Simulated scan of single mutants.
Amino acid sequence: MPAKKDPQTRLIDAAMDVAAAGRWHDVTMIDIAQSAGVDIGVAFDHFKSKADILRQFVRRIDRIVLADLDPADFNEPGHDRLIAVMMARFDALAPYRPALRSIVASGGDLGPADTLRAIKTHFGSMRWMLDASGFTTGGLHGSLRVAGMGTIYARCFKQWLEDETADFGPTMAALDRALSRGSEWDKRIGTGISRLSRVCGKIQKKCDRFAQRCRRADHTEQTSPSAENRSTAP
């Protein structure tokens, strides 16, 4: 007998089921709780809104993709590995395509605050996907890299939703092209940031030297005989 799913898992599954059956905008938390066979109070303990459910769904997909990584692939070129990771993400999402179409058609049914949290979740996922592919995501360059990956993924996701091929070949081809273009921009950004860092370093050194000269001049003025005479003058 299969193990009974926990309420959170049942609620996420139910949300995807009711989204696939109708307009996500019309779905309520009560609809989801009833479909999951979960008491509405228990549902409230786990999720405060449909947006909460969507964020946890995204995290579920993250876990599926990351758990399926093969350490033997870590030495592959970053471009190839990133394509493999992102296509694995699409494979994990495949069973939920009808639900995702409904959710996308309703814009996720998100308010302003939920939209900001959704963006944060989206970029968090992209950071993990890049990390899993061997790309660094720290600092300014890393943040720009995450933002670029988020844009690429969003575009390819829309194509994937309508991709009816068995292997999602057109989506993979579009992803390959977008990542190749992104790689060129990534190199330019990296070069630009390195140059900017060197210039900022030189400016900082000049500022430090100027500050040191000012401190020495101030110290000399304070300890000079004329300064002592001024301090003892009636």
Rank of each mutant, 00 (worst) to 15 (best):
Q34A: 12
L116H: 06
K120P: 00
R209Y: 07
Q34H: 14
R127V: 07
D114F: 08
P98C: 09
V27W: 04
I103P: 01
S49N: 07
T165S: 15
W185T: 07
A67Y: 03
A227D: 09
D163S: 06
I193N: 08
R10W: 03
P170A: 08
D62V: 09
G150A: 10
G37P: 10
L140K: 05
L144I: 02
D62T: 04
A14N: 04
I53L: 10
K206A: 14
E164C: 04
G150H: 12
T9E: 11
R117M: 15
R55W: 05
W24N: 02
A211L: 04
T28K: 12
S183A: 15
A173T: 09
A178N: 04
A118V: 01
P225Q: 11
D39G: 11
I103V: 14
K50P: 04
I152W: 03
A173L: 11
P71S: 09
F90M: 01
Q34W: 08
R63Y: 02
K206Q: 12
A33S: 13
A14Q: 03
N75G: 06
N75W: 09
L110T: 07
R117K: 13
E164M: 13
A118C: 05
P170L: 12
I83E: 00
R97Q: 06
E221C: 05
V146E: 04
A105R: 10
V42E: 15
G148Q: 11
M1S: 15
A174P: 00
I203L: 15
K202C: 11
S231R: 15
G78K: 06
S133K: 03
G41I: 11
S224Q: 10
R216P: 00
F57A: 02
L116W: 10
